[in-house]
Amino acid sequence: PLLVDQISMYQIFQVDEIGQISMLSTPSSSLSLHVQGVVGKQYRFAVQTRYVNGSGSRVSLWSSNVSIPATFPIALSPPVLQLVSSCSRCIQVSWTFSNVAPNNGGNANISFEIQDTVDSLSITTGDVRTFTLSNLRTQIFHYISIRAKNSIGFGPLSSSSSIFLNPTFPDAPTNLRVVDGSYAVIGGVIQVTLSWVVPRSGDNQKLVNYRLYNTTTLNDLDQGTIISVAFGDANEFTVKNLVGGMEYTFRLNAINSQNIEGPSSNSVFFVAGEVPPLAMNA
């Protein structure tokens, strides 16, 4: 047997699963070597020793097969966030990732998970580099992070990127008018019916309410009359308890499911009385 102090150099050789031999190192006195290879591929190794006295060298037996295991993917850079012009409740998320070792941990079967901490949202995508998040809350900052996943599991979560989503305003109701023949005095109560064309609510949200204002008396304390909307398509409302002889100027605003009030409709001038009143539909 040889003593360690009789050996001057080591040299490492590798043979892959198809029998191809390659030299991994130049002669060195080091007793270890870091080897890179393809995940899942089988390798065997041999060590050649060189002696101090110059009497030659000896090659060890080949090692047993060694398979390089897969690891977790690397951490990604923070994603790039962009607003989507056609959808005010959407965020386009994009990122960069090179699906090669060691980035993918040696496993090319990569997917990605996008997280929005504000809406407690977690979405897994395929091997893509852009994705659009939709139906998000507005009037708030969203903080978006991303991480890669392979067959072993998830890599580290990236730092977050933030973006503010502006509110989605419904359109103004149009053609607000007094319905012909709707004026009535029932049990001493004066009433009239208003109608309008239902506006768009914005990004396919539902209209949940309207707010009817009498702009003649509107002040800081007058918040208008809330009109509940059944199924989002109500387009008439009967105003009751009008005062005879008083002038009214009505306008109407729509409120969507995010409790955002849109701009006002056209105004309608109306004078209540005991006889058919004066109504001017603008």
Score class of each variant (00 low, 15 high):
Q36K: 13
V118K: 02
R44I: 06
I74P: 03
S25P: 08
I91Y: 04
L31Y: 09
N107Y: 03
L31N: 10
F45D: 02
E113P: 02
N103F: 13
N99P: 10
Q42K: 15
F131M: 05
Y143Q: 04
C90A: 15
I74L: 14
C87S: 14
Q139V: 05
G54M: 07
G56D: 07
I140W: 06
F112K: 01
Q92R: 15
S30I: 07
L61Y: 10
V80T: 07
Q82C: 11
R58V: 12
Q82V: 14
S64G: 11
S94M: 14
S28H: 03
N65V: 05
Q139W: 09
V47T: 06
P27L: 09
A75I: 05
S67P: 04
L121R: 00
L61D: 14
G105S: 09
Q36A: 13
S134V: 04
Q48V: 04
I21F: 07
G105A: 14
P27W: 09
P69L: 14
N99D: 14
T96W: 12
S63A: 05
Q48E: 14
L136Y: 02
I21L: 12
T26W: 10
V39S: 15
S111R: 07
T124L: 06
T124V: 13
P69S: 08
Y43F: 10
T26V: 12
Q115F: 13
Q20I: 14
P73M: 13
P78R: 05
I91F: 04
A75E: 11
C87V: 08
L83V: 06
A75K: 03
T96N: 15
S120L: 06
S57P: 05
R89P: 02
V84Q: 03
Y51N: 07
D116E: 06
V118E: 06
T132K: 04
V84K: 01
V128K: 03
L133K: 00
G126L: 02
Y43L: 03
P102T: 03
T132P: 03
F45I: 07
S85C: 13
V128L: 07
S88N: 11
F72M: 10
V80D: 09
T130F: 11
S94Y: 10
Q92Y: 09
H142N: 00
F45H: 06
V118A: 02
S120K: 01
S86C: 08
T138Q: 00
V84C: 03
S25L: 09
S134L: 09
V47Y: 05
P79D: 07
V84N: 01
V47P: 03
Y43A: 04
Q82I: 12
S85H: 13
H142L: 00
G40K: 07
Q48T: 08
I114P: 01
I91C: 05
T26P: 04
G37F: 06
L121I: 02
Q115T: 13
V118W: 04
V100P: 06
F72L: 15
P102Q: 05
S22Y: 06
I123A: 01
Q48F: 06
H34C: 08
M23K: 15
T71G: 08
M23V: 11
S98F: 11
R89G: 02
S60A: 12
E113M: 08
